[in-house]
Design a protein around this nucleic acid. Structure first.
Lengths: 216, 216, 216, 216
DNA sequence: AATGAATGAGTTTTCATTCAT
DNA sequence: CATGAATGAAAACTCATTCAT
């Protein structure tokens, strides 16, 4: 909607910061305006309604995320799988990321009421499950993974990671990263999903190494 | 807070229906009042603030749920485990239950901002993980389950079920039960967690049977 | 309005305490009910409206005050005059009295809007000015006071004492009795009104002695 | 708080009129909005809370009054003193002024509960007593007044005038100016305070002349 | 492209009053 | 005499949105 890409950028950054600081439910146009040092009127000049703005923001998030995932589509399937798990673990540096995912969770809960939000959520879901499915398919083809139900396993993996994240975020006060839900579950995923998947006696890469690789 | 248990009951039912029909974010005192055919003032007469009312509601939900779980604490560990999984699956009759869980998800995302809500969420988390852990411990003691990391496995199971539910709810429009996320994941849980857990070659009860048993 | 004099008494005491603690502007029926350990409904049983209750209270205050003034109508005019002045001075023990006068001031400011309140205020004004006028007239008759404009002087005295009280009350925070407006003005009244009034070189009674006599 | 001085002006006028017409206790934001033909929201746009608005109003009143007093700080002390007295007398044209002072009296009674109001009241009190004290000091220095307790006398004068105003306002119905409390007391002040103050046999200016001079 | 001013519709909350018991 | 339950009317305040510049 915004013509000037610089202004659009500033607004999107403002939305991000406002979501982190206020959450979705409490988010006002004024909050966003403050956060990007612009006026409310300007936001409405570029985006007709608050909903338009937020949908545009979601859309952009998804696009960024897709781009990021594509970059990582090389490497051995086993490494990529563990890296995928690691990406969901909250480490002590991740307070902002946690705030953002909390806001995202709030937005997600609006999905059933709002088709445009739902669309973006579906896109995200397809992307995540698709990524895992691709990794699994690649591994099976390469012979490093046993043949399993690719789609079912992908759904399982995504669900457990998402569930762990949701619980860690919602149950923690002040500091999200004190809890270890995501880490515990990522380790559980390695034991219950990754290890039984291995065709030969390959060694599973350490989660800690993957964590370091992922958190740049 | 309400003295008359009948009135309290009506109000709580009103909150439940209002949450199902309007969601948490859009919930107004007027909505609740309408839903239980009372006046806003009466709500404030019994509960000082909106927050008080909603916390009281959450508290009651938890208490009801705890009571329900306790009733089911007999039976063979394996049966109880599969039953636990089944309880998270949305079947075609579950539209209302889904609406409610959606509202609950919205409330959950308020946890980090609200200590009293967070408290109830923790209570729920402890209850769920505790239940699974108990089942696992019982099974190990009885020798039907292999010795595994009880707490870690419990966290994993709860995370995957919760994640599946969240995704099924948030991704679906109109009818939640058209999607099969929860069912897929419950089956995945049986394959990846329950089956490898079995000490001898016991037969895992069918998920469908458990579904029927659970949905009364 | 109340039949049972005991109940009426309790209610009136409740109004008094509620006025002291909450002020007139913030006064609710619930405050009064709490203060006399009764229900709001009971207040409405005895007094149709809040206004009725407060007017009844004012009426009673006036009656009490009249009675008190009448009791003191003996003694030498000069003593009585200084005693009258002393009655307006706030001493350190007078915190409650100050709260009450503050509430009274709030009620007084409702006079122009409410005939029934105004009536009581007029009654009080007549009483006060009348009392001073009587003292002056007695003194003139006895020859201890010079012949002055009795009514004008009475109005002057009442105005200065009332003005001092109003200013002391409204300008003070926490502890009213830290300010000395009323004392300063009472002393000014002695110098500028009482002393010039004396026919012979009579000695004016000390204000401090009068203060002790008045504050029982 | 308001940037546009024209709008601020309109709002302040609205507050003034609303206070005159509704009094302080009954004053709503809607009343003010109606009185200045603006929306409630606009008031909240310029002033965060009702209290902020009223404090801003009081502040402005004080500033205006201070400015007015400064303009009059020339002339002979005796003339200035009588003029000061005259300023408190309500003449038949003063109905609006009386309404306003009534509202002010209501606000004054909120002083003990509200620091920001109290601050303005103190400012007003200092200003009034200071003005009288200055006049007295000037007169003493010029030799036209006897040496008296400047501060005590100033307090006395202010108290009597304020008391008279309070009584006249609160005791009158419909038309305040039918009562003559302020006039009687102003005359009493001349007789009991001003005349005894004169060093030589100066002639006291007539109150009526001062009244005309003051009421422009 | 950008903003300050302005508003209407809606939200929680308060409170005097009424009613059934 | 007494009360708990219930309500309608109104209050302050919020916020997305619009408009004039």
């Amino acid at each position: 909607m915004a013509q000037d890409p610089l202004v659009e950028e500033e607004i999107m950054d403002g939305v991000y910061r406002a979501l982190c600081n206020h959450g979705y439910a409490e988010l006002t146009m004024q909050d966003i305006a403050d956060e990007c040092d612009k006026s409310k009127s300007l936001l409405h000049y570029h985006y007709d309604t608050k909903e338009d703005l937020l949908v545009a923001f979601l859309d952009r998030m998804m696009a960024d995320y897709e781009e990021k995932l594509e970059c990582r589509s090389d490497g051995a399937p086993l490494d990529r799988l563990v890296e995928f798990l690691a990406r969901f673990v909250f480490t002590p540096e991740d307070t902002e990321r946690a705030s953002f995912h909390l806001a995202l969770l709030e937005m997600r809960s609006q999905g059933p009421f709002n088709e445009r939000i739902r669309e973006q959520l579906r896109r995200s879901d397809d992307l995540l499950r698709g990524t895992v499915a691709d990794i699994l398919a690649d591994g099976i083809e390469e012979g490093v993974f046993k043949a399993v139900d690719v789609d079912g396993t992908a759904a399982l993996v995504v669900a457990m990671l998402d569930g762990a994240r949701t619980r860690q975020i919602t149950l923690s006060e002040g500091d999200v990263t004190e809890d270890t839900y995501t880490r515990t579950v990522a380790e559980g995923a390695i034991r219950h999903v990754v290890e039984p998947l291995l065709a030969a006696d390959a060694e599973v890469p350490s989660l800690d190494d993957a964590l370091e690789a992922v958190h740049d």
